[in-house]
Nucleic acid binder design. Structure first.
Lengths: 128, 128
DNA sequence: GTTGCCTTCGTTATGATATAACATTACGGT
DNA sequence: ACCGTAATGTTATATCATAACGAAGGCAAC
């Protein structure tokens, strides 16, 4: 596959600078001055970045995060997400793959696994 | 909390008749003749049904399914979803809660857990 | 170098999902 | 009947995502 283009770089940089998941439109807002003018450019970049494991989508937020890991290839981590502060912490746990295989059964071909945990992080609970 | 209203019943019935997850707008289409006229009515019903565990949201599909289980209270099952035929099979696995607790840590208050497994089911693979 | 092809990128428009804001109606308690 | 609360209805709008098409750039064959 081709190398990252300048749009891809800009989107990735924007995500890396954020400590929270960003929606495609958040990214667009932050890069509009730079170069990106339309949602589709952001989505195209995100799609390419996700294919390479540089970015992950957080399904329940319709948002995206840079992979915390620099970088050992494709994986599908889980996320722990605070509903208050919005921070999403990436994690991996080998048990997830086993649970998934048991649930799916031997004849189901697993392509992706999404595990997302929502709640309140300790700092936000303390502040409340 | 109050009982289910007629809109809630209609939405729940519609979901039960479907063997696949339905989006809010799918539900709206199928109930428009009956009574529901606007998205917000469907979303309100879904919200109430979800609170009671009668319906689950499948995050990565932006869609909803009736709980397969008639009915022992709140739970947060996982789903195995076929990308071809769209069928979502509900399952539960106690290991998920443990993985989630370990990932979140002792000071994180877990509210919901979403585990979704995507791929191809056996019949669809055979057909392809 | 120029032709043809493929991939990327830009632009416009539109489709799909979800909620805000506020008016109206239904209904139980007293 | 009166009030308060919950449910419902209506309109408008916010948010998320992709379709369709054309222009620009790279690259190999000739």
């Amino acid at each position: 596959m081709a190398n990252l283009g300048s749009n891809d770089q800009r989107v990735l940089t924007t995500l890396k600078k954020s400590n929270k998941p960003l929606s495609a439109y958040d990214i667009l807002d932050r890069t509009r001055s730079a170069a990106l003018k339309a949602p589709v450019q952001v989505y195209r970049a995100l799609q390419k970045l996700e294919k390479r494991g540089l970015v992950h989508r957080v399904e329940a937020l319709n948002a995206f995060v840079a992979c915390c890991d620099d970088h050992h290839g494709l994986h599908r981590p889980g996320f722990v997400v605070c509903r208050d502060c919005g921070v999403a912490r990436e994690f991996e746990d080998k048990r997830v793959a086993r649970v998934a295989e048991d649930a799916a059964g031997p004849d189901f071909l697993i392509e992706t696994i999404s595990l997302e945990i929502y709640g309140r992080c300790a700092p936000c609970r303390a502040a409340a």
